[in-house]
Simulated assay, not measured.
Amino acid sequence: MHGEYKVPGGKLVRVDAEVEDDALRGVQVSGDFFLEPDEALEDINAALEGIPTNMDGAAIAARLNGRLRDDAVLFGFSAQSVAIAVRRALSRTSEWSDHDWELIHAGPQEPALHMALDQVLAEEVAAGRRPPTLRVWEWASNAVIIGSFQSLRNEVDVAAAKDNDVTVVRRISGGGAMFVEPGNTITYSLYAPSSLVAGMTFADSYAYLDDWVLGALGDLGINAWYQPLNDITSDNGKIAGAAQKRLAAGAVLHHVTMAYDIDADKMTRVLRIGREKISDKGVTSAAKRVDPLRRQTGLPRADVISVMIAYFRGRYGLRDGQIRPGEQRAAEILAAEKFSTPEWTERIP
């Protein structure tokens, strides 16, 4: 069995082992991490020897921490990351480089169609009819996107949304409400087989799937990091929020909205943002704008997107693609029959 895990912002951990009588044997941990003293690696291998194959990640990490000598120093990895690599070795996993990634960056779409495309493309990847895909969104109109489990009236002032020409839609993933304006946000989705995040908890997979974004932001001169559970932040505050949905059919949908230059006054009129959430949205005054990417890079939005795409392509490979006619038709039907209906949008009133 072989498993790998690249620690977000850290080092690569590999685990090789055999399975005998439902237990790990001949365990060997390796990677480009730093570890002192050398003998601590023997302690890690010994701690993993003989563990049952059904031991979960938290129990494996606890076992490792309990067996490490007091003077052990782990740099660029942790007991938890070794545990993830173990679980990935015991699962049907794949790595980024195992896949031929495709890019979709189409013209502006209406909010309901974006919601439908997320579902359709994720299902196509799960069925093996589409390769793993990165889709960069373009918005045709203002929108508020609420999470699958949010209450509409608790999150949105529907009358204010109508007055401000803001369309309200509900996505299939959980998480909080997002406010978007054409040209003022950067939204992207990843559609990948479940094997890419096999052996990871939801919390671990959030950071894993967005590690490339931190690298791209670094190329833009931004020191960014992942703030659990689902935020990307920087020295100057929050940049983005992520959400995720794992399809039983065998795919993971992971999407992120990044603030480029948002009208904070309009956002606070439409969203019911309590005081405890104001700072989370980067709003100190309703008259100000939420503009971390524009302010921190000084670049046009299109240039920021170009840097992100180039970084992904250089790291994982990425060929240009498009929404296929059948996918477009399926999404249009789904947008009309599900994502534009009160039954879906108001399913939690």
Rank of each mutant, 00 (worst) to 15 (best):
L90N: 08
S91K: 10
S94K: 08
E95T: 14
D98P: 14
D100T: 14
E102V: 14
A106Q: 10
G107L: 05
P108K: 11
Q109P: 01
E110Q: 11
P111T: 07
P111C: 05
L117M: 08
D118C: 09
D118A: 05
V120H: 05
V120G: 01
V120Y: 08
L121I: 14
A122I: 04
A122T: 15
E123W: 10
A127W: 12
G128E: 10
R129G: 15
R129H: 14
R129L: 14
R130T: 07
P132S: 14
P132R: 13
P132F: 03
L134P: 01
V136C: 05
E138V: 08
S141G: 10
A143Q: 05
I145A: 02
I145Q: 04
I146D: 00
I146R: 14
I146N: 03
S148R: 15
L152W: 00
L152G: 06
L152E: 03
E155Q: 09
V158L: 07
V158W: 00
A159H: 03
A159Y: 00
A160M: 13
D163H: 12
D163Q: 15
D163K: 15
N164V: 00
N164Q: 13
N164D: 06
D165W: 00
D165M: 00
V166A: 04
V166H: 03
T167H: 13
V169S: 10
V169D: 13
R170Q: 04
R171M: 04
I172V: 12
I172D: 12
G174V: 12
G175Y: 11
G176P: 08
A177E: 02
A177G: 13
A177R: 08
M178Q: 13
F179V: 03
F179T: 02
V180P: 04
V180D: 04
P182D: 02
P182H: 02
Y188P: 00
